[in-house]
Amino acid sequence: MLAYFIRRLLINIPLLVGITIIVFVLASLMPGDAVLAMISSDTPVTDDMIKMRQGELGLDLPLHEQYLRWMGNIIQGNLGYSFVSAESVSKMIVSRIPATLELMGVSLSISIILGLTLGTISALKQYSWMDYGFTVFGFIGISIPDFFLGMVLVFVFALKLKWFPTSGFITAGEEFSLADNLRHVFLPALALALVRTAVFMRYTRASVLEVLGNDYVRTARAKGLLQNVIILRHVMRNALIPVITIIGVNLGVLFAGSVIIETIFQWPGIGMMFINAVTGRDSPVIMGYVLLTSMIVLASNLLTDLAYSLVDPRIRYE
């Protein structure tokens, strides 16, 4: 088992190298120029000044040399420095990742709890008005883009009802308090959660329905067990197995999806850092971000496999 996971980790290394090449090429192909992006159009500049700055940043070297320099630094744990602020990219990531993880965590918890519960109810009450209601909700949830939902939530719950703050991590000028922070995280987390709630709900419904038709559920009923025991122990345990894959896939999507939501809600996470970097053509930061995202996707795949083996005793990795 352990050997399997170590092997899986090692397989991910060449995958990551491949990703770095693609990321690097894409970042270099990006229209616009870091040096030009720094310059205000009001200040007169000469071509020499631009060339000098490019030289400082190493942008005048051939592409493959730039790549090797970048990779060489990464191996030493150095993701480079921002062209704009000259801050270390790894430090920028480390200081911003907790906010993003908090947003992801809250949003994922909401969607797992809601999605699994509603999906199970939907399946148990198949073809009832509740089932139809949840199905309609599911279609709406899957169809609404999260940035639009985010704006609607701000308009309704922050601007009109004033239940939640419009944006930010904590109330400006106040000491950090968890309650205040949770009030701030709620709306963006909800905006991110809706799509996934709908997706998890639909998959759970299908999966529970399939499991309900199995012989072992009839056996459980024939034993005279309580309905709750049948559902939780016999049905859910089996129905969760395919749902876990969907949750695993969504970890990566959620991380990437937070970019827009973080911008809308001014959430000081890694997504906002990325948007700022793109506007500033700050390629070290962009590449650092994309590399991190790839690693998170690979890690969530590995986690999914691990979760599988915990839920299903038949799965033993050799």
């Binding site: 072992y216 009839r218 056996t219 122990r233 345990r237 005793p313």
Partner: peptide, 8 residues
């Protein structure tokens, strides 16, 4: 198929 595959 009559025994639950994921429970001892």
């Amino acid at each position: 198929t009559s025994l639950n595959p994921v429970l001892p």
